[in-house]
Design a binder for these strands. Structure first.
Length: 491
RNA sequence: GCCGCUAUCGUCUAGGGGUUAGGACGCCUGGUUCUCAGCCAGGUAACCGGGGUUCGAAUCCCCGUAGCGGUACCA
């Protein structure tokens, strides 16, 4: 049994697209499922558009997701000599030919073909040039491209891992260009040469390449190289079924944006895997290890998936399902796994203090554990957690209006503070008993005191159970904030 | 134009010749509690259209339509 070798081969012309991330993920899973090798190849043949910064995005993104590669990165541009040599060999063996058609001539021919509703793939008249003529014109310096000589009357068959059996008549395949007139190789040639040289056994890539596959198979045959197995993945589209692009759809198509917006890497992997594939009616929260166990490429859906985001919705700034999955992870993952991710966010917000890892460790873990219940992205920790970590936090207007500017609240909060100061122990249970007793005595609803306290202590009207907030904040700060709030109540 | 791929709730999907067509997300309602953006319960909503085969079609076949891809000296 030959070794499974798969590759992820992005072209570094911009950001790391979420669709690309999914392709990488499925390749990685396939490699790990088969004890294979995952190769990273950078397809930077288009020098105009490729740039180094972009390469960094891909490396960062793969590392973030935990998709480690076994070989590479191999840069394709460094291999153009091999590609040219292969083209020359194909001319030599008669599998390719020089085409001297000028762009204008070519255009005219194609227009004519379209006008006559001509069936079948394009054939250049120069396909029939004698070797001598061809050599002479080339020697004379006449510009030419190198086209593949597609055999007539044959059929190309392959069984796609996702789409199943495909049959294509060679008559419908055009004599595609392999080398530009400046001698540089084109995609269909370079992928095949590189995949063949790297002994890629399974080519798993986007469905947009499905129609290229018969051409590439023809190339493998002409080269006398073994054909790999192909698997094409459905595309991820925008809600209007258009291609997802950063220009049109913004940051949400960029993988790294999710890292920056507080995604847990595994939530991202999970979401991506579930876009076009399903483990059946079973558990849908899957670790990378689970995915390796359960994923089945033949069960991938054949139709394109829509990335369901709507602009202008702050709560659902990307596909709501992705956010929901992320929230699930934050709520349920082991606290020790979560903590390092939260630390980064805290540092970013300048809220991190070293004693959170030292004498205040227990306290800090407690707060994070308390907060995580209703948090969906990591960046919410410093945001919602601010009143716990700093005295400098915002009093939300809505909350003030709802909970502090209340009839009958005047004077209550400071008095409640006095009572809290006298408590022997200061934990959730004791504070709750005290609060209820206090409300009872003053003949007000407990909610008045409790909700007033919530806003006094945290500036908001939402959050964890209030008595746990008291406990976590501690007596001193609680009391101080209760008293400080009186100015707002009566103001 | 030509060649090809695809089609189940708003979205991701399960299923598949006879089912109340299932789940998740979203949304709505109710409950819980001191709040909700949490938790619990319920609701909402789908087999692209037309023919054919069949006792019976969402499922199989054909045609159509739509979307996507290829038809580039892009990848």
């Amino acid at each position: 049994m030959n070794q499974v070798r798969v590759r992820f081969a992005p072209s570094p012309t911009g950001y790391f697209h979420v669709g690309g991330a999914r392709t990488a993920l499925f390749n990685w899973i396939y490699a790990r499922q088969h004890d294979g090798v995952f190769v990273l190849r950078i397809e930077d043949t288009d020098k105009e558009r490729s740039n180094e910064e972009s390469v960094g995005y891909f490396l960062d993104g793969l590392r973030w997701l935990g998709l480690d590669w076994d070989e590479g990165p191999v840069f394709q541009a460094g291999r153009s000599e091999e590609h040219r040599a292969a083209a020359a060999a194909l001319i030599e063996s008669g599998h390719a030919y020089r085409c001297f058609l000028t762009p204008d001539e070519l255009k005219a021919m194609k227009e004519e073909a379209a006008a006559n509703k001509t069936e079948g793939g394009f054939r250049s008249p120069h396909r029939e040039l004698t070797q001598e003529d061809s050599d002479r014109r080339a020697a004379d310096g006449e510009p030419f491209v190198v086209r593949f000589r597609v055999p007539d009357g044959e059929t190309v068959e392959f069984v796609d891992l996702v789409y199943g059996k495909n049959v294509k008549r060679t008559g419908d395949i055009e004599d595609f260009v392999m080398l530009r007139s400046d001698g540089s190789p084109l995609y269909n040639l370079s992928v095949v040469i590189d995949d063949a040289d790297m002994e890629i056994s399974h080519v798993i890539r986007g469905q947009d390449h499905l129609s290229n596959t018969p051409k590439q198979i023809l190339l493998y045959r002409a080269l006398g190289k073994p054909e790999p197995v192909f698997g094409h993945l459905p595309l991820i589209l925008a809600p209007n079924k258009a291609k997802l692009s950063k220009r049109k759809h913004g940051e949400i198509v960029s993988l790294l944006y999710y890292r920056d917006r507080g995604f847990v890497p595994q939530a991202m992997n999970d979401f991506l895997a579930l876009l076009g594939w399903s483990p059946g009616a079973e558990e849908e929260r899957l670790s990378l290890q689970d995915l390796v166990k359960r994923f089945d490429i033949s069960k991938v859906n054949k139709s394109n998936a829509i990335f369901n985001y709507r602009g202008g919705d702050e709560r659902n700034w990307t596909d709501p399902r992705a956010i929901a999955i992320n929230g699930d992870y934050i709520k349920s993952m082991p606290l020790d796994d979560l903590l390092p991710m939260v630390k980064q966010e805290m540092e970013r917000a300048s809220l991190w203090q070293d004693n959170f890892n030292g004498e205040r460790d227990d306290w800090y873990r407690n707060v994070i554990d308390l907060l995580r219940e209703r948090i969906r992205t990591l960046d919410e920790f410093p945001l919602r957690g601010r009143p716990y970590f700093s005295d400098d936090f915002e009093m939300e207007e809505r909350a003030v209006k709802k909970n502090l500017k209340k009839e009958g609240l005047a004077g209550l909060l400071p008095q409640f503070a006095d009572r809290l100061e006298k408590l022997k122990v200061f934990d959730a249970e004791t504070v709750e008993a005290e609060a209820r007793a206090f409300a009872d005595e003053r003949e007000v609803k407990p909610g008045l005191v409790i909700n007033g306290s919530r806003t006094a202590l945290t500036g908001t009207n939402v959050g964890p159970s209030m008595f746990h907030v008291f406990e976590v904040l501690g007596r001193e700060r609680s009391v101080r904030r209760l008293r400080a709030a009186e100015a707002i109540v009566t103001g």
